[in-house]
Nucleic acid binder design. Structure first.
Length: 487
DNA sequence: ATGTGC
């Protein structure tokens, strides 16, 4: 829980940017991307969301934080650090924290493009839904076709998606279009507990539950012709979006390292404003060990999405006869990460450790990290909507590089707690309402339908327009759901 | 998010 609940001044510094000036223990200001309506919701005394801004103030108070603690427009309270939050740290004076990454390490979204159009799916929605439902292992505690030994899981932790490709899941061409090419360096399997590895032996290639999904979509609007052409997207085209992460292993790493970093925070005299936001100096042995574990967790998520890409191709081949190789990876971007990147701070290039929790990397044109084919227009940013609403493809901008360390929003952002949503949205009603709007849903658990009901989220169009209005990203394409498979 | 938490 966030500790203090003091009322603080919030001023508007740009059309869609609000600022809490540095005061008290804050080392930098907190900046929030919002419009008038959203900032009112975020600061309403009764609003539960107020804790998201308090969490942001706590982040702004951490040692070594640079420029500002940032909240994207989809911000909502998370464990110790807001979801939709970004914090960049000086490696020498700064810290690394479990809460700043999130428990689902390297959770992310992959977008696949098919050569199909909406007409090719007409009347075949149920067949596609069934094929994906049965072809993609999902649900809490589900196990996949891959059964790894302890030696093999260590290779997953080191090699990420490359391990999956070497086993025949997908192709090297996929990796070109995955953030970091599907593999983080610096991963150390020895930094990951035996428990974490054991839990993952049969979970590589599984979707999971909660807000994880596979969704068949159709491109219904293009906002930026040049970028859409570069990304290979056109109106009427069928796409598939995959949202999942590092499953049990990532979660276990978070569980294991929370008490470890709490001890480190005491050892290095880092003030603890919130016990959920414990951290260690980046360059301490404890900080380095957690980083090595997170990189291993990140690689597990990369491998997971790579295996699932293969299973999705197989399922669509079975349902519609499409050639697996005709389904192309457009891009994959994660939204629970921590990584070293170069950014400009006070006119000087500097290596920083950037935490993005429920926030994506969104690099502007020209950055070498962007695949060559996309480099001139900027990095693709994938924003997953809800079951009933659109998802977006965006691109990073120069202004984003200056203002948000090249970061953007990751989704619509939860507006109602899971508990509240469960009470308010009975699963049957949600399924019926989606059906009426032409969206076919299959779910492995009934509660996830209620918890993930569109009404439990903010308006995705609104939060995307805030970020676009601020110039941090630019809109490229909108995707409408046709078939959704929920964990 | 997660072999759902004290």
């Amino acid at each position: 829980m966030a500790q203090q609940r003091t009322s603080v001044p919030i001023t508007r510094v740009e059309r869609y940017v609000y600022e809490i000036p540095a005061h008290g223990e804050m080392r930098v200001p907190a900046r929030i991307y919002a419009d008038e309506e959203l900032i009112e919701e975020l600061t309403a005394p009764a609003a539960q969301e107020w804790s998201a801004l308090q969490q942001l103030v706590n982040v702004a108070s951490l040692p070594g934080i640079q420029k500002a603690a940032l909240a994207m427009a989809d911000v909502h309270p998370g464990y110790g650090f807001p979801i939709g939050g970004v914090g960049a740290f000086d490696p020498k004076e700064g810290v690394i924290s479990v809460a700043g990454v999130g428990f689902d390490i390297n959770c992310g979204v992959r977008l696949l493009a098919t050569e199909l159009t909406r007409a090719d799916l007409e009347g075949k929605e149920d067949r596609v839904a069934d094929a994906l439902f049965h072809g993609v292992p999902a649900g809490l505690g589900s196990t996949g076709e891959l059964k790894l030994t302890e030696k093999e899981i260590d290779r997953v932790l080191r090699e990420g998606a490359h391990y999956a490709v070497n086993l025949g899941y997908g192709t090297p061409a996929d990796l070109t279009y995955v953030e970091e090419q599907g593999r983080m360096s610096g991963a150390d399997p020895d930094a990951v507990s035996r428990t974490a590895k054991q839990r993952q032996l049969r979970q590589v290639g599984t979707l999971g539950s909660g807000n994880h999904y596979v969704e068949v979509q159709v491109v219904d609007e293009i906002y930026d012709e040049e970028a859409a052409r570069a990304f290979g997207l056109a109106v009427g085209q069928v796409t598939i979006m995959l949202h999942t992460g590092s499953r049990a292993l990532g979660h276990q790493i978070g569980t294991d390292y929370l008490p470890f970093l709490e001890r480190a925070a005491r050892k290095y005299n880092i003030p603890i404003r919130d016990r959920e936001l414990v951290c260690a100096p980046v360059e301490s042995p404890e900080g380095r060990q957690y980083y090595a574990a997170v990189m291993a967790g990140a690689n597990t998520a990369f491998a997971n999405r790579q295996v699932l890409t293969h299973l999705i191709r197989e399922a669509l081949n079975k349902a519609l006869g499409v050639a697996p190789e005709s389904i192309r990876t457009v891009y994959e971007i994660a939204h629970n990460t921590v990584k070293f990147e170069e950014h400009e701070v006070n006119g000087r290039r500097k290596r920083l450790l950037v935490h993005r929790k429920g926030a994506t990397r969104a690099f502007g044109p020209g950055r070498p990290e962007i695949p060559e084919r996309y480099r001139s227009v900027g990095q693709p940013v994938l924003v997953g909507g809800t079951m009933g609403t659109a998802s977006y493809v965006l691109r990073g901008t120069e202004k984003g590089m200056r203002d948000t360390f090249g970061s953007a929003l990751h989704g619509a952002g939860r507006a109602k707690s899971r508990t509240k949503a469960k009470k308010e949205y009975p699963a049957d009603r949600v399924i019926r309402q989606l059906k009426e709007r032409g969206i076919t849903v299959r779910a492995h658990g009934r509660s996830s339908i209620s918890e993930e009901a569109p009404g439990a989220y903010k308006d995705v169009e609104q939060v995307v327009d805030i970020m676009a209005g601020a110039g941090v990203i630019a809109k490229v394409a909108r995707l409408r759901p046709v078939v959704t498979i929920k964990g």
